[in-house]
């Protein structure tokens, strides 16, 4: 099944100088590394460790996650609309997988 790795909410358009609210929920098990499976074997840690968001190439948000964060972590933040550009969401987990999603913000 094709499962979107993230759901993002933000406006497509904003006026110059306006504050833009952005919300995202990452689909991730956030396996702590402290749990065992049903035969007693340790389940290896696999959490999202870092997430960054760039806007027009400039970093506007950085998040360092800890094992205490529950599955499917949620983040809300805001940025100021400066010029039309792409917001690029990038995050990595303990398996080394890199996820990327982007959204266009048109500034009027």
């Amino acid at each position: 099944m094709a499962r979107a790795p993230v759901r993002i909410s933000m406006p497509d358009e904003a006026k110059k100088g306006e504050i833009v609210d952005i919300k995202a929920i990452l689909r991730h098990p956030m396996e702590t590394g402290y749990r065992v499976d049903n035969v007693g074997k340790k389940i290896p840690r696999n959490i999202v460790t870092d997430m960054t968001v760039t806007y027009g190439g400039v970093e506007v948000m950085r998040w360092k996650l800890q094992p205490g964060v529950a599955a499917n972590p949620f983040i809300g933040f805001s940025t100021v609309a400066i010029e039309t550009g792409e917001l690029v969401f990038t995050w990595t987990d303990d398996t080394g997988q890199v996820f990327r999603e982007s959204r266009m913000l048109t500034v009027t």
């Binding site: 099944m1 094709a2 499962r3 979107a4 759901r7 993002i8 909410s9 919300k23 995202a24 929920i25 689909r27 599955a71 499917n72 949620f74 809300g76």
Partner: peptide, 14 residues
């Protein structure tokens, strides 16, 4: 967006 259940709703839509 914050409701994690909506991840499954999105999948259901696909």
């Amino acid at each position: 967006i914050a409701n994690p259940g909506m991840l499954w709703v999105s999948d259901g839509e696909s």
